[in-house]
């Protein structure tokens, strides 16, 4: 059986609101990044993959198993929700043990795997403390440990870096990369840096549609050689915004530092610079005609 997820023509609505529109995706082994702003449909897609939501139409196969066979899918997938917690009065080890039972692990398996996984997410020393006493970062790591407790072929993590400080975020991404060595890890995020650093393959989703599917390099090539930066006054900014795709701006007193896309050098103070993933992402978002969220 091939370690692969195939999604064909998937749609899902909440009442009138269509959250996923004809999504086609193929995901193989390794880290896969699902990038999109809030409300894009990331959580919906991930829940459908982990059987927590039923699709309206389309076909999904996870490692050859149709998503309709929920109990089979649940055996081979691990899921970390965007927002989660555990019984606050349980100790870390106890919580893992409880979830391990629900995953059908035997006592021997739990005894072997739980300490190993706590070690892996660096929580060995916290095994005896109550879940309510964990910091945000520790809780996330515990979340990962519980999701791979039954050694799933597919790990689905929804916005795992939200709420972490920059250092924790980096460590967390590295942890996920390690886990992805022998399985599929799908990670959703609205932060470009998360996928840039760790994901080979990515998809950009907006308003329920896949806007881009490919490698980070391919995403970059969308804007390669067309990125300029300049420091301009606020008045000039309006002119630039009306004629070019602005991908970022930082206000400095009366002036604004902007990055924007242009096919040729637009004016003398503009400097050509290297394209970043952020530029490509913003370009994609604006090409769709949707306003920027920031």
């Amino acid at each position: 059986m091939k370690t692969e997820i195939v999604i064909r023509n998937l749609s899902k609505s909440y009442g009138k609101k269509q959250a996923l529109k004809n999504v086609d995706l193929q995901i193989g082994k390794g880290m896969f990044g699902l990038l999109g702003r809030n409300g894009a449909g990331k959580t919906t897609l991930m829940k459908v993959l982990s059987t927590l939501l039923e699709k309206d139409s389309g076909k999904i196969k996870v490692c050859g198993i149709s998503v309709e066979h929920a109990s089979e899918i649940r055996k081979i997938t691990g899921y970390l929700p965007q927002e989660f917690s555990m019984y606050p009065n349980m100790k870390v080890y106890e919580a893992m043990d409880y979830l391990g039972v629900l995953s059908g692990l035997t006592k021997a398996q739990r005894k072997e795997r739980i300490p190993m996984l706590l070690e892996r997410v660096n929580l060995t020393e916290n095994a005896g403390i109550k879940v309510r006493a964990l910091s945000g970062g520790m809780k996330r790591r515990l979340g990962i440990a519980q999701a791979i407790l039954h050694d799933p072929k597919v790990l689905i993590v929804d916005e795992p870096t939200a709420g972490l400080d920059p250092e924790e975020r980096v460590r967390f991404r590295n942890l996920l990369s390690e886990i992805a060595e022998d399985r599929i890890v799908i990670l959703s995020t609205h932060i470009v840096g998360d996928v840039e650093a760790t994901c080979e393959e990515i998809a950009v989703i907006d308003q329920g549609r896949i806007l881009f599917r490919g490698t980070v390099g391919e995403l970059l090539s969308l804007v390669e050689g067309r990125v300029y930066r300049a420091e301009v006054s606020r008045k000039e900014l309006d002119r630039i915004r009306s004629s070019y795709n602005v991908t970022s701006m930082i206000t400095l007193g009366n002036n604004v530092k902007v990055r924007f896309l242009a096919d040729t050098k637009p004016f003398s103070t503009a400097q050509h610079c290297d394209a970043g993933v952020e530029d490509a992402y913003m370009y994609l978002m604006q090409r769709e005609g949707a306003p920027l969220c920031s």
Binding site: S50, L52, P81, S85, Y87, L99, S103, G104
Partner: peptide
């Protein structure tokens, strides 16, 4: 109510244990 209050529901939902067993 504890599952919901502790936001533990989805961690349990996604596991293989059949609903009847839980």
């Amino acid at each position: 109510l504890r599952d919901k209050r502790s936001r533990m529901q989805e961690l349990i939902y996604a596991r293989r244990a059949p609903s009847g067993t839980v």
